[in-house]
Amino acid sequence: MQVTVTVNGVPETHDVETRTLLVQYLREVRGLTGTNIGCDTTSCGACTVLMDGESVKSCTVLAAQADAHEIITIEGMAAADGTMHPIQQAFQEHHGLQCGYCTPGMVMAAASFLQEHPQPSEAEVREGLEGNLCRCTGYHNIVQAVLAAASPPEAVR
């Protein structure tokens, strides 16, 4: 079947098998391999992307369901000049990643969360990231990074 999906601002039309998952479409058809696959059960959140601005697990969305929708992946987070998004910067500054495999999904989940909770408490950040698993960081620095990214710009650095 044919789908037209706008990914990181770029619409493209492709033929895909009906069973193609959004994450497979992004990785294999669009060549955007930043979005990772970590499980089969909608548990780990490694594949999180934004669909119409909200976090979704792209392993549990068919490419067909994303037809005519807008997707933002980790590759779409930096500014055009390559400057990292404040959330990406905060992850580096607070050492919120180690192996980096969960990181794209974690950043996208955080982006959606901060959209919905601009000034969260630590407890809210922890709840808000309940759908994303990380095996390296123990979450301590991820939580610090998200809290920092939520602060007013002058407080981030």
């Binding site: 909608t42 999180t48 976090s55 979704v56 697990k57 549990t60 969305v61 959606s112 759908g131």
Partner: peptide
């Protein structure tokens, strides 16, 4: 229900 991503879908 579930987690935020699940609740978005």
């Amino acid at each position: 229900v579930g987690d935020p991503q699940v609740r978005h879908r």
